[in-house]
Design a protein around this nucleic acid. Structure first.
Length: 230
DNA sequence: AAAGGCCCCAACCGCAATTCC
DNA sequence: TGGAATTGCGGTTGGGGCCTT
């Protein structure tokens, strides 16, 4: 299996992220969104691989990422989910909004694994003592309600503009990309025409960052804009 | 106070899956 | 349709901090 071509550069930085790098990535994504992890670092001024940037964003920089200790409820969800799903950390993480798969994986190995193996050992001992059947955790687990975890809730930065004069288009079609309430960037389709793109950025920026203003000239000179083939 | 061991967690690596051209 | 590019996932590692002796 090949390595991605964009990550062949030997000069890419590795190791812990500096505050400056975090700020560069955050500000770039808040401004331009996530359009291509592979090529983004270059435009953001980062000497990092796309994978490294993605990981940093997903685990730490993304809005709504929870830090700190896990609650009892979260621990129980992890334990129950793990008994159901095994090491499907991404699936388990989807049941815990704000927690990354990496964080859950680490927490499992450092805290919960010992506890559950200890419990299992205790259960086995009990079983031997009473010579009865042990009701495993698995049989007691119920499917966790996750209707509101996996779906998109709405648009954080984008809303329909009432200003119909800003675009040559007579219909103000809804923008099909942005950040949902989980902090995930989504893009439901191709941007379309130049006007679509310009309209998109114009709708995006005023809500995302009120002091930020952008002109058509700004857009057309932007590397992302050029990358998108214009 | 210093040295060694242990623990935790951020980040890397390799691979599979998916998307794009 | 096949290969290349990109994304996502899970296992693993390495280093820093804490604890013990």
């Amino acid at each position: 299996m090949r390595s991605p071509s964009c990550e062949k550069k030997a000069c890419l930085k590795k190791g812990p992220w500096s505050h400056e790098e975090d700020e560069l990535l955050k500000s770039y994504i808040s401004k331009y969104g996530i359009w291509n992890w592979c090529h983004m670092p270059k435009f953001a001024g980062l000497s990092r691989s796309g994978k490294s940037c993605r990981l940093r964003w997903m685990n730490y920089l993304k809005p709504n990422v929870k830090r700190g200790n896990f609650s009892q409820e979260e621990e129980e969800i992890i334990i129950q989910s793990h008994s159901l799903l095994g090491n499907k950390w991404a699936a388990i993480a989807s049941k815990l909004p704000g927690r990354s798969d990496n964080e859950i994986k680490n927490y499992w190995h450092t805290h919960l694994k010992k506890r559950t193996t200890h419990n299992l050992a205790c259960q086995t001992n009990d079983k031997n003592e009473i010579n009865g059947s042990v009701t495993s955790e698995i049989s007691e687990v119920q499917e966790i309600e996750d209707d509101n975890v996996n779906g998109h809730f709405g648009l954080l930065f984008v809303q329909n503009s009432e200003d119909t004069s800003s675009s040559s288009s007579s219909t103000s079609s809804p923008i099909d990309s942005g950040f949902d309430f989980n902090g995930d960037y989504y893009n439901l389709g191709s941007p379309g025409t130049v006007e679509d793109i310009q309209s998109f950025w114009q709708q995006l920026f005023p809500l995302e960052n009120s002091e930020l203003e952008i002109s058509h000239q700004d857009i057309s000179s932007d590397p992302v804009f050029q990358y998108l083939k214009f």
